[in-house]
Write a protein that binds this DNA or RNA. Structure first.
Ligand SMILES: [Mg+2]
Length: 610
DNA sequence: CCTGGCGTCTTAT
DNA sequence: ATAAGACGCCAGG
């Protein structure tokens, strides 16, 4: 009984958080994926855990390819999008479901009209300080907005959906209680139909705009989509749009990432575009203009310098762009700042979330418990140098730390040559563009006279570079304190990542509301949970602990979360606690998260043993 | 035409 | 003041 309710709540919370409607396995999986992204962030970096989660994610991605033929509602539940964007940007701390809902709705309302045609793009315009989605995402947001709440209802009404049929009768009353807990839901309630499962045309028949097949703005950069997208073919564009929010990183940062991760350290604009579209699918379908902005940034930002392309051919075109050594460090700091800003959301906007750490510059895995080197045969191909420009340290330094993970994680990457390799090229500038490419532009502080070759320059600059370019690995004094903390102390990680936890806070709120609900319905549960749910500390997992029986891995999750439940106080405490919770989740990621979704869906049965 | 370099203007911080 | 981004212009292919 209680356990069942708890798990149900858990499911619902997960789903709502992910903005999904039905208690389907798919939705739960997707919701879990979100959760995992969060976990990855909390974990900060490609640890063994995130490695596992990455793998999980990949597998998940594959399995997420909904077959067009399947139930129509599947298509309407594109993976996470909305709440990450709609919610997290809020002041979040005090963010209530209500406000969230309202704001979402508003933003959606404002833009939804523009969806009809290419002509009216104003609403789609980028806005510097406001998260946006490409196309369909907006409408989805609207739907999600109401849907997230409606799900509470729908989920509770046994007959509403296929999966819910499994649910025990007791849910009926539960259903009632939940509804009660949201007596006056904003916005949504305004539309009474929202509470009726059938009133979601979007899910059963999907609104025209969101309808799969169609109309996406033609895009020239259709290039490497298929490789990463969650769904296939026809769905793809649509899905891509809906799924990937615009990255919150600034253009400068994105460009920086592109250059930093390039083999040579310099790229033509076109490749910078490619990098962006490849890693941030939003750009595949983004309205025109972003390329302008990229170019504009290249020109404007002193961090980026033009490099003569081939044989000093003049001109205005065909240039390569490289990083200005003198500014790199600054950029790197910027990047780390952004990184902390909202890591989860960033990952969401990425084609391959697990690549984030690599793109940002490797993290010090050594600080984490990384399993001993599993020397694998595929090593040679994927040695850490995949990100040449990001590493200035010696291979020896890198390998021990990275290999195990990188190797498997990035095995698909094409081998690249270490960026510190002496450019066998005639144009050193190209191969080592970071070092103030050509004398043409006496980069600040760097004697361009040394021009052609790296060694002289390299000899002088490296310290700075090393520090800036390689992920602050070395114990370089110059590394910022924050970064240090970030790397070495997980506790700080949590603290730093605070912003990224807004989702969780929302979750907490939600949970709390659910809990309240439970209280009403079931005094007993309330007793145990009420204690844990005092405002100051949302011991989200705690309440679960009591209820959830030692069921396989899942229970382990909760249990381990439990262990670290008690901690500090105040916000920090909560965060840490959550951290603990997620750490607890890790084991699951390891052993079989996939089963979790399934487990959750069928939890009612298994839990009853309590 | 398209691409790419870069300028202008607006907005938020 | 500055950062960031949307948008515009124009040269060159
Ligand atoms: Mg520049």
């Amino acid at each position: 009984m209680k356990p069942r309710r708890f798990l149900f709540n858990l499911q619902t919370m997960l789903l709502v958080k992910a903005g999904r409607q039905h208690h389907t396995k798919e939705n739960l999986s997707l919701a879990l994926r979100d959760l995992i992204l969060t976990v990855m962030e909390v974990q900060e970096g490609p640890t063994d855990v995130s490695y596992q989660s990455s793998r999980f994610w990949c597998r998940m991605s594959q399995s997420l390819t909904f077959s067009p033929s399947s139930k129509s509602h599947h298509q309407t539940s594109p993976p996470q999008t909305k709440e990450g964007s709609c919610f997290t940007q809020e002041k979040s701390n005090t963010l209530s479901l209500r406000t969230a809902a309202v704001s979402r709705r508003h933003s959606a309302d404002g833009m939804i009209s523009s969806r009809s045609g290419r002509g009216d793009l104003d609403a789609d315009r980028f806005h510097p300080y406001q998260r946006q989605f490409s196309d369909g995402a907006v409408t989805e947001c609207l739907q999600q907005c109401s849907s997230s709440f409606s799900s509470l209802h729908e989920v509770c009404s046994p007959g509403s959906h296929s999966h819910s049929s499994d649910m025990p009768p007791s849910w009926d009353q539960y259903n009632g209680s939940i509804q009660n807990s949201y007596p006056e839901l904003p916005g949504i309630p305004v539309d009474p139909p929202c509470f009726l499962s059938q009133s979601y045309p979007s899910y059963s028949s999907a609104s025209p705009q969101q309808q799969v097949s169609s109309r996406l703005y033609p895009n020239k950069d259709q290039s490497s989509t298929s490789k990463y997208s969650l769904s296939s073919q026809s769905h793809q564009d649509d899905t891509t749009q809906s799924i990937f929010p615009k990255p919150i990183y600034s253009y400068s940062i994105l460009i920086f990432m592109a250059l930093k991760n390039s083999k040579t350290g310099s790229l033509p604009v076109s490749e910078i575009y490619s990098f962006m579209t490849e890693h941030f699918p939003y750009f595949k379908t983004a309205p025109d203009g972003w390329k302008n902005s990229v170019r504009h940034n290249l020109s404007l930002n002193k961090c980026f310098e033009k490099v003569e392309n081939k044989n000093g051919s003049t001109s205005r075109k065909g240039c390569l762009w490289a990083l200005n050594p003198a500014k790199v460090e600054k950029m790197q700091e910027e990047l780390h700042k952004w990184r902390r800003k909202d890591p989860v959301t960033i990952r969401r906007s990425m084609a391959k979330p697990e690549d984030l750490d690599r793109l940002l510059g490797e993290r010090p895995e050594r600080l984490r418990s990384v399993p001993p080197n599993p020397k694998s045969g595929t090593l040679t191909r994927a040695t850490p140098v995949y990100n040449p420009s990001a590493f200035t340290c010696t291979p020896a330094e890198l390998r021990p730390a990275c290999q195990p993970i990188c190797q498997s994680l990035y095995a698909h990457l094409q081998p690249q040559q270490p960026f510190y390799l002496p450019p066998a090229v005639t144009h050193p500038s190209n191969s080592f563009a970071l070092f103030s490419p050509c004398g043409q532009q006496p980069a600040a502080g760097i004697p361009s006279s040394t021009g052609s070759l790296n060694s002289p320059v390299a000899g002088k600059i490296p310290p700075v570079y090393n520090n800036a370019l390689q992920c602050d690995y070395s114990v370089e004094p110059r590394t910022t304190m924050q970064e240090f903390l970030l790397e070495g102390d997980t506790t700080y990680d949590i603290d730093m990542l605070n912003p990224s936890l807004t989702d969780l806070q929302l979750q907490g709120n939600l949970w709390e509301e659910l809990r309240v609900d439970s209280l009403v319905a079931e005094p007993q549960v309330s007793t145990s949970s009420s204690a844990t749910f005092v405002p100051q500390n949302h011991h989200i997992q705690s309440s679960g602990l009591h209820v959830v029986p030692p069921i396989s891995q899942t229970s382990a999750v909760v249990a381990s979360g439990r262990c670290e439940a008690e901690y500090e106080d105040g916000d920090e405490g909560r965060n840490v606690e959550q951290h603990g919770c997620f750490n607890g989740l890790n084991p699951v990621l390891y052993s079989g998260v996939e089963s979790l979704a399934g487990y959750l869906t069928s939890c009612t049965a298994s839990v009853s043993l309590m």
